[in-house]
Amino acid sequence: MAKYIGFRLLATIPLMFAIAVVTFLIAVAMEANGSIAIQVCGEGATPECVSAVEENLGLDDPIPVRFIQWLGDVVSGDLGASLLDENASVAGLIGERIWASVSIVGFSLVIGITIGMVMGIMAAIRPGGLLDRSLSIVAASVIAAPGFIIGMMLSWGIAIELGWLDPIGYTPLSESVTGWFTSILLPSIALGMPTIAIVQRQLRSSMANALQSRYVLAARARGVGRAPLIRRHALPNAMVPTITVFGFRAAAAIGLTTAVEIVFGIRGMGELLVTAILNRNVTVLQGGMLIVGLVVAVVNLLVDISYGFLNPKVRLAK
């Protein structure tokens, strides 16, 4: 198993490199537009201003040289300064905001996998039963609902009408644990509800397949009872496709959290990225995307590692 994890860890390096290349190319594409200098110097900029900005950003060097320099900076933790405010380091800007986003995404995924699994198993125990059919209709509707709409509904119902929680704002974990928890609870549920539905749907269908398999029939012929049949025989096999789908959803949730954060007035990565796009603030956007990309790579790694636990074939093949 250690060997397998090591192998997956090594395999993540090219992925991270690819993410770095893509992020870097965004800046190259933007300067080909000439839009960076215009953003700083304003419309109708003087050539002096443009060349000064370009020199400042080191845009005169050949692209591969710049990439290596940029990558070197990135690896040492320097993501440069904001294009619009030389005093604000990109790393600092991200550092202020990333933990809110990570908290919401992380907690939404925890909610998604746990509740989703419980509901998926419950539906699979009596396929075609009342519970199964009602859950499948609810799941289909929730999957169709974007997190930010669910967020507005929750915010209105629970925070405003019932007054149980604050409708907006984020409290860092370092300030107050309960404050942190109550501030991320609603956004996490909003982002997590489609995840619950996705996990429920996938687990229910792969459990149903597993329960129809020959090895489950054989286990029944050995006198294995209903509960161990589901827990020990069907579940581990059904979890493999479920984890795959969960991994895709995790990557999507990292993107979708932007909209949910805005509903709850949380200054996270979402606001940072959207503002950077509107201001064409290339350094902030570059840094932000790089960090988000790395988080995705880490999530992929975790998914791959959990395959190893679930599927002996994967583990032993390496």
Binding site: R214, Y215, L217, G225, L310, P312
Partner: peptide, 26 residues
């Protein structure tokens, strides 16, 4: 559940596809 006490204890079954009837994860 009454059957569970009999199957595997008083009657054993051998199937046609020997690999397919073994749980791949166990």
């Amino acid at each position: 559940s009454e059957w569970q006490a009999i199957r595997g204890k008083d009657v054993g079954v051998i199937f046609q596809e020997p690999i397919a009837v073994l749980n791949p994860a166990i």
